[in-house]
Simulated assay, not measured.
Amino acid sequence: MASHISHRLSSRHFSPQPRPKQDPFEVLTITPELHADYILTLPSASFLQCPSWAQVKPGWQSETIGWADGTGSLVGSALVLYRTVRATGHQFAYLPEGPLIDWSDDNLSRWLDPLVAHLRKRRVFAVRMGPAVDLHRWNAPTLKSALRSDEVLDLSDVPPDEVNKTGAAAAQQLRSLGWRNDGRLTRTSVQPAVIFELPLADRSLDDIWRGFSQQWRRSIRRAERERVQVSIGNDEDLPAFYALLKVTQERDGFDLGRSLGYYQRQYDALRAEHPRRMALYLARHSGETLAAHTMNVVGDRAWYHLGASASHRRELCPSHAVQWQMIRDAHSAGCVIYDMRGFNTTLDATDRRSGLLRWKVGTGGRAVELLGEWDYPLNRSLYHAFNLYLASRRLA
C-alpha cells in the first residue's frame, strides 16, 4: 500500500480525486515528502503540521501518517509528535493543529477510529489533536462594542456573529466518539483555542487600510515620519530578536520558556523546507533594532507568530510599522487570511491581559474560536497521571 501511495503522489501538482463518502480508510506511515506533497494539494495547512515542525521539537519523536482510501489514493495526512513516559514506555501522541482530514464528513469515525487503532499499536496511552476548524466568529464591530462595555468582562459572554455548521457538527461527533474537550474559551491547551484573523481575500490594500482604526493609521504614519526602517532579517539577526523577546516577556509578564537555540532550530528547519515557511521582520531606527516579528506562510494563509519589541522609543510605533509591512507582504503573496494567533479572552479594561486583543482589533479583523484541542484516552490511569503532570508543567 505505501509504495502504491508513493506512486500516486509522485507529482507535486497532484490533486485528490473525488471519492464516495463511504470509502473505507486505512491509516499508515508515510514519508515526510509524501506528507509535504499532500499539503501542497490543500489551500493551506497549519505550519505546525508541516514535516519541518518535527525538527523544531526537542524531546519528541515524530511520524507522518496518511489516510488511504480503497483505491490507494491519499485523502488525508498528519504530523504526529510522540513523547515517551520513561517509567512505562508508553507514549503520548500530539497532532498540533491537525490532522488534515475532511472535517465536513458526517462520519468522522471513518477517519478517527483507524487513527486510534494505529496509535494503539505504538503503545500510546492518550492522543491529543487540535483541528484547525472554525467554530464561532466575532466581527470587529461586535468586539469593539464589547470592549467598550463595563458589563461584559469576557468574550465567552458575547454571542458570536457566526456559527460554523461544519465545526459545530464536528464537535458533536467528537463528543459522541469519546473525545474530550472542556468546551470553554478559557480552556487550557497547548495551542490557542481562540485566534484573531484579518481577512485579505477580495480586498485591496486600500480596503485593508480603511479597515484599520484611526489609532493604527496614526501609528503607522508616525513610524513612517520618524523613518523607522522595516526589513527582512536572516539567521544572524536571531540573537537581536531573542534579546527583544526576553524584554517583552519581562515587560508583559509571561515566559515562553524557549532558548535562543530553539528559535535558531525553528528558523533553519522551516526555511529549509520552504523559504516562505518563516521570515524574520525587523524595525530599526538610527541603527537600533526596536521590534522583531516572525511570519509563517503555508499556501494561502500567513501567520504572525511571535512579536518582540523594546521598552524604549515606543512612541516611534515600530511594531505597527512591522505589522503593516507583513500584512502587505502576505497580501502580495496571495494569502486570504493574516492570522494574528491567540489572545486572552478577558474584555476587562482594568486587566492588562485585555491589551493584546484591543491592539489586534485595531486592524478591523475578527476573533475566531476553533474546535480546540481534544483528547482521547487509551489508558485512563496513565492519562489522569499525565494531566496532573501537565498542570504543573507546560508541554515543551
Rank of each mutant, 00 (worst) to 15 (best):
K57F: 05
P99E: 01
A321H: 02
T41M: 12
I101V: 15
S204K: 08
N344W: 09
R137M: 10
A117I: 04
D202G: 09
S11L: 09
Q17N: 10
S176E: 15
R314A: 10
L40K: 13
L395I: 15
V190W: 07
L9H: 04
M340D: 03
A243S: 13
D351Q: 02
H293W: 07
H384M: 04
A243H: 13
H305G: 07
G253T: 05
A68C: 15
L108W: 03
E226R: 02
S286R: 15
P20Y: 07
T186A: 12
Y376V: 04
T29E: 05
V56R: 05
R271T: 06
K144D: 10
H293V: 08
L155C: 02
A291K: 03
M278P: 03
W209M: 05
Q249E: 12
V116E: 06
L95C: 08
S231G: 11
A169Q: 14
S104K: 14
R122A: 01
T289G: 00
M129L: 14
I337G: 08
I30P: 05
S231L: 12
L9I: 07
R284Y: 06
L155W: 00
L205M: 12
L205S: 14
R210I: 10
L290D: 05
R110I: 02
E273S: 08
W359C: 01
K246W: 01
L174W: 04
D329V: 13
I5F: 10
Q55R: 13
H136N: 14
R218C: 04
V152I: 11
I232N: 12
Y262H: 15
N139T: 13
I327P: 00
L357E: 01
G66N: 09
N107Y: 02
A193P: 12
T289H: 00
P16Q: 00
D113V: 14
A279S: 11
L79Y: 04
S311M: 11
T294A: 06
M1S: 15
K144Y: 06
A333V: 09
S259Q: 11
H331W: 11
H285M: 08
M340C: 13
S381W: 11
A2E: 10
L260C: 02
S3C: 11
I208Q: 03
T142L: 05
F92H: 01
R19D: 07
S231A: 15
N344H: 06
E226G: 03
Y242T: 00
W303L: 03
P99D: 05
